[in-house]
Design a protein around this nucleic acid. Structure first.
Length: 302
DNA sequence: AAGCCTACATTTGTCAGTTC
DNA sequence: GAACTGACAAATGTAGGCTT
């Protein structure tokens, strides 16, 4: 019999970003649970947890280890997402996961995390990876059925409805899986897709951050003129050159009396004529910043 | 308070190889 | 030779912890 590690992928199977939701009976749909990807290895009473990059996370999520303890006499490799489910909001809150990931000592009053499972790679002696996803999902449900702290991600058959449901309730997005698909490493497949729900905003770039004589990112202000973050995703070299040119033509003075600490160490080029930009981002952070902002377009650039 | 660290996600640029 | 693709590195940003 092979060791458990022989069944561990170099990287877990990952969904590919898509804009259009594939439809048809060969596809299944799941909510995208916003947390950290964790593979779990169970064997002979031992439980260990590893991250996307196969780093050991066993000590970081003791409650997950404990939730899995009922299953630990079996020989299993499971795949899923560790999330903090906010009871009032009715959805996962990623910030809580970040707090846990960055803490060394876990306080006893730390919020409890849930392990949301969506795949099984090994079941006893059986390599499950070649089985169709629908069968792996069914087997996972049999094994995990109603264990506290564990959840099997539901599989739905109507992608558009799930998308609307997720959108209405502020979830991160949905994952679309080909029901016949084997488990393959990384993104070398055409079987798993994800579509993220993004907030769209038209806002103003009032300054640019300059590094080594080049535009590094745009400083964005919200409706009330306050700092809501910076954005660089979506800028290519050509756009950066255009921006630098624009900054030269419309050089202005500082808008704020006091700079956000974020910006204090940066070299800024203030604009006398702000640029209207469109951005998307995943969500607002607690202190009013955009999480993962991305520029869609900039108006008024030559 | 500043600066560095770790971990993660994602895009952009580049290079090499393949295809038309 | 142009256009596409995959693999890879670099860049950018997120955020709290830790040290000074």
């Amino acid at each position: 019999m092979n060791g458990l590690k022989d069944y561990l992928p170099k990287e877990p199977m990952a969904p590919i970003v898509t804009e259009t939701i594939p439809s048809g009976s060969e596809w299944g749909y799941q909510l995208k649970w916003d947390g950290v990807r964790i593979l779990s290895l169970l064997n002979g009473g031992e439980v260990s947890l590893v991250s996307r990059k196969l780093l050991n996370k066993t000590a970081l999520y003791p409650e997950v280890v404990s939730s899995l303890s009922e299953l630990k006499e079996q020989r299993l490799i499971l795949d899923g997402e560790v999330v903090y489910f906010h009871p009032e909001l009715g959805r996962p809150v990623f910030q809580k996961v970040l707090q846990r990931e960055r803490s060394r000592a876990i306080s006893t009053s730390a919020p409890l995390f849930t392990y949301v499972l969506f795949d099984i790679l090994l079941d006893g002696d059986r390599d499950m990876r070649q089985l169709p996803y629908i069968e792996r999902h069914q087997r996972l449900q049999q094994i995990v059925a109603n264990k506290p702290g564990l959840l099997v991600a539901d599989l739905f058959n109507d992608g558009e409805s799930l998308w609307k449901w997720a959108e209405d309730r502020g979830w991160e997005g949905i994952v679309i899986k080909r029901l016949s698909s084997p488990y393959r490493e990384g993104k070398k497949h055409q079987d798993w897709y994800k579509k993220k729900i993004a907030i769209r905003l038209k806002t103003e770039a009032i300054a640019m951050i300059i590094r080594e004589g080049r535009v590094a990112s745009l400083v964005l202000a919200g409706d009330d003129g306050s700092y809501i973050g910076r954005a660089s995703l979506g800028l290519n070299e050509q756009t950066k050159r255009q921006l630098l040119h624009y900054a030269g033509l419309h050089s202005g003075s500082a808008c704020w009396k006091e700079l956000h600490t974020d910006l204090k160490k940066e070299k800024l080029a203030w604009l006398s004529k702000p640029l209207t930009v469109e951005v998307t981002f995943l969500e607002w952070s607690q202190d009013g910043m955009m999480r993962h902002p991305k520029l869609l377009g900039i108006q008024g650039l030559g």
